[in-house]
Design a protein around this nucleic acid. Structure first.
Lengths: 204, 204
DNA sequence: AAAATAAGTGCAACCGATGCACTTTTGAAA
DNA sequence: TTTCAAAAGTGCATCGGTTGCACTTATTTT
């Protein structure tokens, strides 16, 4: 009753509690994962650590992988923003390339949390797959942006192809020692092809 | 006692029985899958139908998906062969494109079994993912062929990128009504890019 | 105050998969 | 032939992820 303030947003007590529970679960999960590795932590353990039942856990998260990528939505939005707000004159493939390269460049001394997180994902195949699948969900949105930008029809298959390949580029570079260079070369291929398609060749 | 012949190949009784068991399992699995759908058939049912234990089943197949793609090895080999034995003068991307297009063109009236199989795979996400992963395992081999053919170093990232993207092309075309056209356009992008890379830039 | 809503609980169960100890078959050596 | 070791197969128990169901709370609405 005496609690007056603390209601800046239109969030009822209920929704706040829900959010808190969700956060508690995600935090507990990430702690355990970082400490012992993804595969060596069970759902039951996480639920115990967060002091909820496994049933409750699965009402908040669609699966085990989703516990790790709690904020994947933000990353996806960020990726699209990078393309939309790219410097004038910069091509879309280049913007995507820069984004891909930047993502891999986090300094362990600078951002230890982010580094540990990336490491966790990087050494867990299940997480790599999940992340990549989520990544690809941006294909359609990205294709639309490309189409708008180049004046092609919104459903032009070439736009989808470029979007898909660009999102796939980091994976294509996976097995090379120098990943950054491999990514660059993959994007070179795409950019050259894209130039040919959008400029010349159409009508001889 | 009266069984005299029937040992033309260097296959002992043992290996024949093993192969028979494996085949029985795969057949039972495919029958059930086609009849009721992949997700609605359990491993235990398949094992029962083939009259073996689940333990035995898993000694023959690495997982549930592997029951469906019993002959994936042949398909992979075939794919590489298509590239190696392509008509003189035909580029590698074109050979891959033709192969990709041909794979999708099976006439239900002509090859009902193959059609039913493709349909089963096509409507089961788990199987699509598994198939695609197996598909991508050809990336390295394909990259090597591309490198040899174009005189680039065997580990040139551009070759890996082209191989990866080409294998990815069918997926990029997934959401278009006219899949064949979408695949063609995706390969156009790759081919143009590849030409630019291999013709120009080498040594000015 | 009562009814409607939604969070959370507890439990049992299913499914894919694995490990272990055990029996049977089979190929070949003794 | 007898014997022996490897390999195939079995049975069972168990694990971890996931879901369904019936049930108790807490909060919101009427």
């Amino acid at each position: 009753m005496t609690e007056t303030g603390a209601a800046p947003a239109p969030l009822g007590r209920r929704e706040r509690k829900k959010a808190a529970t969700r956060q508690a679960i995600a935090d507990a999960a990430l702690d355990l994962f970082l400490e012992r590795g993804y595969d060596d932590v069970s759902i039951r353990e996480i639920a115990d650590a967060a002091d909820v039942s496994t049933t409750t856990l699965f009402k908040h998260f669609s699966g085990k992988e989703a516990l790790v990528f709690d904020r994947q939505d933000e990353m996806k939005a960020h990726q699209l923003a990078v393309v939309r707000e790219r410097p004038r004159g910069q091509s879309i493939p280049v913007a995507l390339r820069e984004h891909a390269l930047r993502y891999r460049q986090i300094n362990p001394d600078d951002e230890p949390e982010a580094a540990a997180f990336l490491d966790l994902v990087g050494r867990t195949p299940a997480l790599l797959d999940y992340q990549h699948a989520a990544w690809l969900e941006n294909t359609t949105a990205l294709a639309r942006i490309i189409a708008e930008d180049s004046g092609l029809p919104a459903d032009d298959p070439a736009c989808t192809a470029l979007a898909h390949f660009a999102l796939e580029a980091p994976r294509a570079a996976r097995h090379h020692q120098d990943r950054a260079e491999a990514i660059t070369r993959a994007f070179d291929l795409l950019e050259q092809g894209w130039q040919s398609i959008t400029s010349g060749t159409h009508k001889p």
